[in-house]
Amino acid sequence: MVDYIVPCLLFAAAAATLRKKENAYDLMLSGAADGLKLMVRLLPCLILLLTAVGMLRASGAIEILSNWLSPFFSLFGIPPETAMLVLIRPISGSAALAVGADLMAQYGVDSLIGRTAAIMLGSTETTFYTISVYFGAAGIQKTRYTLPAALIADLTGFIVASITAKWLF
């Protein structure tokens, strides 16, 4: 069932555009070119951040810090191995990608940790960035309870990701 979602969505998007008598192929080409431009912007970030995360891993810091934080994370049922990802996810999207890729490489992409990391990445956002963009644009000084509420949403995401990774596979 799930296997057909992405292929069918691809087809539906192309067919619906054709029905509107628009040039689906050219539109897709220009979209794909935009995507490549995005990748070019992301590439230097990934090089710098994977270097930093690789150093952190090689120095033993990730292991030691995960062990320290382990009691706190176990309390919520979140695997301590994903501690770095949980901490960096709300702050930086590209750093979270780097940490997530490192986790998948370290533990295997289809391992429990690799899957948990993927689900976490897919179901959360760069909270601090989002908040600053929206409040900056709307000219809001007092954010009231937005940050705590958004962080509660994030924490829920991390906990539920740990549960679904365990139960759905």
Binding site: A14, T17, G31, A32, M39, L42, L43, I47
Partner: peptide, 29 residues
């Protein structure tokens, strides 16, 4: 790490690029 960075970026590029093409279609459709 620097090598891993470029490997990751290149192996992601295809899927990201294709998907932003699909995104453009979904907008127009």
């Amino acid at each position: 790490g620097a090598q891993n960075g470029i490997t990751l970026a290149i192996s992601m590029a295809g899927a990201i690029s294709l998907w932003s093409g699909v995104g453009k279609l979904m907008e127009h459709a």
